[in-house]
Protein backbone atom coordinates (compact mmCIF):
# COMPACT_ATOMS: atom_id res chain seq x y z
CA UNK A 1 0.00 0.00 0.00
CA UNK A 2 1.27 3.46 -0.79
CA UNK A 3 1.82 5.81 2.14
CA UNK A 4 -0.14 8.61 0.51
CA UNK A 5 -3.22 6.38 0.74
CA UNK A 6 -3.30 7.10 4.47
CA UNK A 7 -3.42 10.85 4.04
CA UNK A 8 -6.95 12.22 3.96
CA UNK A 9 -7.78 15.49 2.19
CA UNK A 10 -7.90 17.54 5.38
CA UNK A 11 -4.56 16.11 6.46
CA UNK A 12 -2.90 17.99 3.60
CA UNK A 13 -4.42 21.18 4.96
CA UNK A 14 -3.03 20.40 8.42
CA UNK A 15 0.39 19.71 6.92
CA UNK A 16 0.20 23.05 5.09
CA UNK A 17 -0.86 24.86 8.27
CA UNK A 18 2.01 23.24 10.15
CA UNK A 19 4.46 24.25 7.44
CA UNK A 20 3.12 27.81 7.57
CA UNK A 21 3.58 27.88 11.34
CA UNK A 22 7.16 26.68 10.93
CA UNK A 23 7.68 29.32 8.24
CA UNK A 24 6.53 32.22 10.38
CA UNK A 25 8.28 30.93 13.49
CA UNK A 26 11.71 31.57 12.00
CA UNK A 27 11.38 35.34 11.52
CA UNK A 28 9.37 35.67 14.75
CA UNK A 29 11.99 33.93 16.86
CA UNK A 30 14.97 35.51 15.19
CA UNK A 31 13.70 38.94 14.22
CA UNK A 32 16.00 40.73 16.61
CA UNK A 33 19.07 39.41 14.87
CA UNK A 34 22.27 38.75 16.74
CA UNK A 35 23.80 41.17 19.18
CA UNK A 36 27.01 42.44 17.64
CA UNK A 37 28.15 45.56 19.36
CA UNK A 38 27.35 48.06 22.08
CA UNK A 39 27.04 51.76 21.42
CA UNK A 40 28.22 53.96 24.28
CA UNK A 41 26.97 57.55 24.28
CA UNK A 42 28.19 60.38 26.48
CA UNK A 43 26.43 63.74 26.49
CA UNK A 44 24.38 62.66 23.47
CA UNK A 45 27.34 61.95 21.21
CA UNK A 46 28.64 58.47 20.40
CA UNK A 47 31.61 57.93 22.67
CA UNK A 48 32.58 54.39 21.65
CA UNK A 49 31.36 51.33 19.76
CA UNK A 50 32.31 48.19 21.65
CA UNK A 51 32.67 44.87 19.87
CA UNK A 52 30.74 42.33 22.00
CA UNK A 53 33.09 39.58 20.89
CA UNK A 54 35.99 41.14 22.79
CA UNK A 55 36.09 41.33 26.56
CA UNK A 56 36.89 44.86 27.60
CA UNK A 57 36.19 47.59 30.11
CA UNK A 58 36.03 51.30 29.37
CA UNK A 59 35.70 54.41 31.42
CA UNK A 60 33.40 57.15 30.20
CA UNK A 61 33.73 60.65 31.64
CA UNK A 62 30.58 62.62 32.43
CA UNK A 63 29.58 65.71 34.39
CA UNK A 64 29.39 63.79 37.70
CA UNK A 65 32.43 61.59 37.25
CA UNK A 66 33.39 58.36 35.53
CA UNK A 67 31.00 55.62 34.38
CA UNK A 68 32.60 52.21 33.88
CA UNK A 69 31.21 49.86 31.22
CA UNK A 70 32.28 46.24 30.76
CA UNK A 71 31.84 43.71 27.97
CA UNK A 72 31.97 40.05 28.86
CA UNK A 73 30.73 36.90 27.09
CA UNK A 74 28.72 38.78 24.46
CA UNK A 75 26.99 40.92 27.06
CA UNK A 76 27.52 44.44 28.27
CA UNK A 77 26.75 46.20 31.55
CA UNK A 78 27.38 49.34 33.50
CA UNK A 79 29.79 48.34 36.25
CA UNK A 80 29.76 51.58 38.19
CA UNK A 81 28.27 55.02 37.87
CA UNK A 82 28.41 58.13 40.04
CA UNK A 83 24.65 58.73 39.70
CA UNK A 84 22.56 58.79 42.90
CA UNK A 85 19.99 56.10 42.07
CA UNK A 86 22.15 53.53 40.22
CA UNK A 87 19.34 52.47 37.90
CA UNK A 88 21.67 51.71 35.01
CA UNK A 89 23.97 49.64 37.21
CA UNK A 90 21.11 47.63 38.67
CA UNK A 91 19.82 46.83 35.21
CA UNK A 92 22.56 44.26 34.92
CA UNK A 93 23.71 42.53 31.78
CA UNK A 94 22.31 43.59 28.40
CA UNK A 95 22.47 40.96 25.69
CA UNK A 96 19.63 41.37 23.20
CA UNK A 97 19.65 43.92 20.39
CA UNK A 98 17.83 47.07 21.41
CA UNK A 99 18.41 46.71 25.15
CA UNK A 100 19.66 49.92 26.71
CA UNK A 101 20.90 51.15 30.07
CA UNK A 102 20.77 54.89 30.65
CA UNK A 103 22.73 56.64 33.36
CA UNK A 104 20.86 59.91 33.03
CA UNK A 105 22.59 61.95 35.77
CA UNK A 106 26.00 61.32 34.23
CA UNK A 107 24.61 61.58 30.67
CA UNK A 108 25.97 58.17 29.67
CA UNK A 109 24.07 55.37 27.93
CA UNK A 110 24.97 51.98 26.52
CA UNK A 111 22.83 50.16 23.98
CA UNK A 112 23.16 46.77 22.30
CA UNK A 113 23.05 46.87 18.52
CA UNK A 114 22.17 43.90 16.35
CA UNK A 115 22.45 43.01 12.72
CA UNK A 116 18.83 44.02 12.22
CA UNK A 117 16.84 46.37 14.39
CA UNK A 118 13.44 45.16 15.54
CA UNK A 119 12.94 47.84 18.17
CA UNK A 120 14.32 51.30 18.67
CA UNK A 121 15.06 50.46 22.27
CA UNK A 122 14.20 47.96 24.98
CA UNK A 123 14.22 48.68 28.68
CA UNK A 124 12.58 47.03 31.65
Amino acid sequence: MRWSAFVRPGDWAVVAAGAALVGISFPLAWQAGVAEKAIVRAGGAVFAELDLGREQRIEVPGPLGTTTIAVERHRVRVVSDPGPRQYCVRQGWLERPGEIAICAPNQVSVQVKGSREAYDSLSY
Binding site: F6, V7, D11, G18, L21, S25, A29, W30, R96
Partner: peptide, 28 residues
Protein backbone atom coordinates in the same frame (compact mmCIF):
# COMPACT_ATOMS: atom_id res chain seq x y z
CA UNK B 1 14.24 33.81 29.60
CA UNK B 2 12.99 34.53 26.11
CA UNK B 3 16.26 33.23 24.66
CA UNK B 4 14.56 29.84 24.86
CA UNK B 5 12.40 30.75 21.91
CA UNK B 6 15.42 31.03 19.64
CA UNK B 7 15.21 27.24 19.53
CA UNK B 8 11.49 27.15 18.82
CA UNK B 9 11.75 27.01 14.99
CA UNK B 10 13.89 23.86 15.21
CA UNK B 11 11.38 22.28 17.57
CA UNK B 12 8.52 23.16 15.21
CA UNK B 13 10.31 21.65 12.23
CA UNK B 14 10.81 18.46 14.23
CA UNK B 15 7.18 18.49 15.38
CA UNK B 16 5.96 18.74 11.80
CA UNK B 17 8.33 16.09 10.47
CA UNK B 18 7.89 13.53 13.22
CA UNK B 19 4.17 14.34 13.44
CA UNK B 20 3.72 13.37 9.80
CA UNK B 21 5.85 10.22 10.11
CA UNK B 22 4.19 9.00 13.30
CA UNK B 23 0.76 9.81 11.90
CA UNK B 24 1.47 7.77 8.77
CA UNK B 25 2.70 4.82 10.80
CA UNK B 26 -0.36 5.02 13.06
CA UNK B 27 -2.72 5.31 10.08
CA UNK B 28 -1.12 2.27 8.48
Amino acid sequence: HNGLFYMAPFFFVAALGFGIINGLIAAR
